[in-house]
Simulated assay, not measured.
Amino acid sequence: MEDFAEDVEDYLKEREIRNLIIDLRDNGGGDFFVGLALAWRLVLVDGLDWDHGIYTLIGNKTYSAAMSNAAQYRQILNAKLVGEPTGANPVGYQDMGQFSLPNSGWTITYSKRNYRFQDTHSEGVQPDALIETDWDSYRRGIDKPLVWVMDDIARRNAADG
């Protein structure tokens, strides 16, 4: 991730990119420190529109570390969360541990640490812009949250002249 994040930082700076979309939908998670490594490099890009130009797409299949990163990006990057609530709760147990039972050999997994990525319990991390997926749009290949973000960027650019 460090090499990728450095490449992204360089790309954004060289091309004077003002808007950034990070898509965490359909992301089951992993290690949330990997997402923080990306955030660490992004904060070095002064040319981004830090008030309105960073978006994170989330959905009901945004779990675990991806959910954590969505909540962190809202705080660290001032990202606007767009889409549907995450599938994981931002207050609860995460970090999988595991062991094998000696006689059966079955692997047992469990969550071992309680994290609080927001102050209150909720049904997932709630988006700033709720854009629900519907079957008709999905069937026609229309990505409603992405369309919403692109329209928002176009509106802001038109207002800026």
Rank of each mutant, 00 (worst) to 15 (best):
L44W: 11
N89P: 08
A88D: 11
T107Y: 05
L24F: 08
I58R: 07
W50V: 09
A154W: 02
L24G: 03
I54Q: 07
D10H: 14
D128A: 06
F117A: 01
N114G: 06
D134F: 03
F4C: 09
D3S: 14
N89R: 15
P102M: 10
G28N: 10
A71W: 08
Y93L: 12
D49Q: 11
A71P: 10
D23S: 06
L146F: 00
D136V: 15
S111L: 14
Y115Q: 06
P85Y: 05
P90T: 13
G35F: 06
N157H: 12
T120Q: 15
E14W: 09
W148F: 02
G83C: 01
V34E: 03
N114F: 14
V43P: 02
R18A: 07
D3P: 08
G97K: 11
E84T: 13
A88R: 08
I108W: 03
D46F: 08
A79F: 05
L42M: 11
M96V: 15
Q94P: 04
L24N: 01
R15W: 12
D143C: 00
P102C: 15
Y63W: 13
I76C: 02
D95N: 15
V8H: 06
S122Y: 10
D51A: 11
F117M: 01
A70P: 12
I131M: 00
V149M: 00
L130P: 01
S122Q: 09
E6H: 13
D3T: 12
I21P: 09
P145E: 00
R18C: 02
R15G: 03
S111W: 05
L77Y: 12
Q94E: 09
G59H: 04
A154G: 03
R155N: 06
R113T: 14
L146M: 01
V147Q: 00
A79E: 05
R156L: 03
E123K: 12
R25I: 01
P127M: 02
L130D: 04
I17Y: 03
F33A: 11
D134W: 04
M96A: 12
D7W: 14
R139T: 08
E123D: 15
S100C: 06
W106S: 09
Y115M: 02
T107D: 05
E9W: 10
S122D: 13
T56R: 04
Y11G: 06
E2W: 10
E123G: 15
A158F: 07
I21A: 03
R41I: 04
L48R: 09
L146R: 01
I131F: 00
D119F: 10
F33L: 13
A159W: 09
I21H: 09
R15L: 11
P102N: 14
H52P: 01
I142F: 00
T133V: 08
G92I: 14
D134V: 02
G29R: 05
V149D: 00
G87R: 14
M67N: 12
R116P: 02
L81G: 07
S64K: 11
R113S: 07
T120M: 08
R15M: 07
D51V: 03
T120K: 15
G161T: 14
K144W: 00
S122I: 09
